[in-house]
Design a protein around this nucleic acid. Structure first.
Lengths: 195, 195
DNA sequence: ACCTGAACACCGTTCAAGT
DNA sequence: ACCTGAACACCGTTCAAGT
């Protein structure tokens, strides 16, 4: 697997490295303020850089997002590894789902970009999202094996569920915990349905 | 309450009525093909009408959506009234939720517009969405009174749930039934939690 | 009363031309 | 090797001017 984020970070001319860093910090602020749909020309302008410089460093909006969030998103994989060692598979999944929804809400509109990139192998965010999905898969199957989680859900359905909760919670933050609770209870294998 | 859809339909000059109808049928096709984000200038052009004519009849994109979908969305209220007479409050809610999700998926991107309009009292779709929400509230409280549905959910949380499932199902249609099942099971009051 | 074409300020993307 | 300003084709919205 290619690590695009390292590949993209310039190592040549000093002004190239400086522009790259300026674009990242400016984009972070712009996304935080206007959501991931923030104007790219505007980001370049604010960074004091020609717009083509932005497009050279980050060919797509998703490349910019990967550079900003890749590390934090890959942290969900580490978190999943930790939780695999915890005593309750059921509780471990619940904890991780909450963290995943949190990560997907880092910027307004982010969750759309994440879902899009998972479906698009050419996206710079694709590998990152697949790693998140794989991290969830580990915890999911462990919990399914103990019989507390419904067996008809796979990793990609779980990703959809995380995304749907993040999407709705972004629009009505007051309902976030309820949405999480409904999702997680819905994942629970019902007592009266056990074999 | 003002019925904006009737108010907007022109009754004066013949060309005005004709343009109005042309815009509606053109918009229906455009939304079906490109989602609710379809270009409005393009719709006007295809309808053979000046773009300002479109904006006079439909000041906002939501006005256009209301004209196209208002009747069908208000049908969810009628459906709710019917279902209130059915023997199983629990099953009635399940049936209605499925129908509501279906309606929210009429066009790509529609669910975003619906959620937006519910939060914005000035939107032409606002009253329509509130009617949908109220329709769900009836079935929800009836089912809650019989004790099969968790009591910590209100009508607006239910609307969020419907929207979140519609949003996710639009992006991965294969998971639609699973998403619905998880949501509805999550709404179920658990056997081991009953008083 | 209702219409239209043209203008405006944006957007993402790509161009030719620099140093 | 890396940069920039200007152009391009769009977008939604609004203008002045028609019949």
């Amino acid at each position: 697997m290619v690590d695009r984020s390292t590949q993209a970070r310039p190592v040549g001319r000093k002004d190239a490295r400086r522009n790259y860093e300026r674009l990242l910090t400016t984009a972070r602020t712009a996304f935080a303020e206007h959501g991931v749909g923030a104007s790219l020309n505007d980001i370049a302008r604010t960074a004091g850089v020609g717009n083509v410089t932005l497009y050279r460093h980050f060919p797509t909006r998703q490349a910019l997002l990967e550079a900003l969030l890749g590390e934090s998103l890959r942290g969900l994989k580490a978190r999943s590894d930790e939780l695999l060692a915890s005593p309750s598979p059921h509780q471990a999944l619940a904890t991780w789902l909450t963290a995943a929804v949190e990560h997907a809400m880092a910027y307004r509109g982010l969750v759309d970009a994440l879902v899009e990139s998972l479906a698009d192998p050419t996206s710079e965010l694709h590998a990152t999202c697949q790693a998140v999905k794989a991290a969830g898969a580990q915890l999911l199957t462990r919990a399914q094996h103990t019989g507390t989680i419904r067996p008809d859900i796979d990793a990609s359905a779980l990703f959809s569920l995380i995304a749907s909760v993040a999407w709705a919670a972004e629009r009505s933050p007051a309902h976030r915990d309820q949405l999480l609770a409904v999702m997680f209870d819905g994942l629970h294998r019902r007592v009266d349905e056990r074999a």
